[in-house]
Design a protein around this nucleic acid. Structure first.
Lengths: 147, 147
DNA sequence: CCTTGACCTTCCATTGACTGGAAGGACTAT
DNA sequence: ATAGTCCTTCCAGTCAATGGAAGGTCAAGG
């Protein structure tokens, strides 16, 4: 199978598949002309990767999961540990986004949104520095920004 | 004010402050020795940025908000539009994470997590390619991965 | 045989928002 | 004079791709 076909079947773009190879997650064979030559097991791994990434597992987690997947002797506890770790990170992220959401929704609902310049959103964002440092606007709270 | 002091007062690391300057969000003066020399308005803008970033606004949104903040004639509707757009993106992201969470929680709860190799999590991730492409595992659904 | 077009290859750059570190100048206190 | 802390710039790396350039390969049609 050429990369185009496996891309269609796996649902992953060719670029991403090449990237996964460069990351060492797959090792497709090569034909004489230098083209990658994927077999069913490559396709299977790619589908696995697509699913795992879709669930938000990082590449490194995917690597670990694939190793466990290959290991017929693995303990399900090892897999569960990875999944649970990931689950708790998702939960934390959800909680964080919910907090943002509530604050922002408050601000939005308090803003008239008309032609007048008075805007509680800007007023709040620009509130005094003292309050900023009093409310814990410290870099410590390493939030995953950019939602 | 040197960068260290303004960093303490704003709660932003010096590196981040330099980055914001390089991004054109602030323009602190310089003293003769080449040190940045921040005044209260710089500090104010940095505090504004810290808040806005804390709410998940992107740098470009922050730039737009700062411009509106500087513009005494701005219409609150302009600000509200940005905030609402951001709010809906947060909502979408929350929904997406919740969907992931539910799927993952299902898988985790179905896994014994003991020393035996049987693992429903891997079984599901590795489920047939046909199912993968039948369930819409397409790159179209550009999710913000990595939670 | 030649061309067209669809593939495929590698390599490099870019994204966002920083963060780490190196190399070196400046200031303060002893 | 020296130590220690602060400041400067510049370069590289993060994560997971994605975009694009330059060029090789292949099958079909004229």
């Amino acid at each position: 199978m050429n990369i185009g076909e496996v891309a269609r079947k796996s649902g992953l773009p060719p670029k991403t598949i090449r990237y996964y190879e460069s990351a060492g997650l797959i090792e497709p064979a090569r034909t004489d002309n230098g083209y990658r030559d994927f077999d069913d097991s490559d396709l299977h791994r790619l589908a696995f990767l697509g699913r795992a990434r879709g669930l938000g597992f990082t590449i490194e987690e995917c690597r670990a999961l694939l190793e466990l997947y290959d290991d017929r002797q693995r303990a399900s506890a090892d897999v569960k540990r990875i999944a649970e770790g990931h689950l708790s990170r998702i939960d934390a992220r959800i909680a964080e986004l919910n907090a943002m959401r509530d604050t922002l929704a408050d601000l939005v609902s308090s803003c008239a949104g008309d032609g007048r310049p008075d805007c509680p959103i800007l007023a709040d964002l620009g509130a005094g520095v003292s309050r900023a440092s009093a409310t814990g606007n410290r870099p410590a709270a390493k939030a995953r920004r950019q939602a």
